[in-house]
Amino acid sequence: MCTTCGCGDTHLVPVELHEKILAGNDRVATHNREHFTAAGVLALNVMGSPGAGKTALLEATARASGGRWRMGAVSGDLATDRDARRLEKAGIPSRAITTGQGCHLDATLVHDALHGFPWEELDLFFIENVGNLVCPAIYDLGQAANVVALSVTEGEDKPLKYPVMFQAADLVLLTKCDLLPHLEVDVEQIRDGLRRVMPHPEVILLSAKTGEGIPAWVAWLEARRAALPRRHGHTHGPGGGHHHHH
């Protein structure tokens, strides 16, 4: 009410907020991250175009692991659970997140997929995002790092065309490098593009088919696992210091 004369008029007030529109997603992502960290699970958000070789990468990782890591995955897909089934076959327990029309995963979709999934027992948890070089980049899921797969068949201009995705990447995997002899693609030009969109460019050239570059990828995973905060004994039981995942 207008206090000057009591006429009942309303006041026009500007409410200054300066807050992230994705603050709600970020809160859930922080919650996911706390769970992963407390359980000593290295969670990776794997992004890239459709057909960049994300699923093949995880299959190759399972082969390279040789049982050394307990691995699991959730994979976002518009309409099918094909990727999840492929991963299961490769020995990676998986769950599909069918997004329908959704072009990306968000923190809540990942959180809900964790229910009833034995993620706490894992060393490596892959979140295979929806194939898309645009939308997934801006959604924090609670991962420890973003890994972007870019196949050498996609051309040299992709880093400069999709700077947001590559800027968000902690590691870029240039996949399908076994095809290079058949292509007119200059890998050095892709690397140069990445240096112009990533302040910390980390790039591995690899082939899931021939195994080239897989040792460097495995070494990167080892280093990331070693950098995780130490797991504090048993955190699952009552009084374990953090609330159990519900």
Binding site: P14, E19, I21
Partner: peptide, 14 residues
């Protein structure tokens, strides 16, 4: 440079 922010909401209040 990489943020999407809700800066201000102007509204009528009693």
């Amino acid at each position: 440079g990489d943020a999407l922010l809700l800066e201000t909401v102007e509204m009528e209040v009693p």
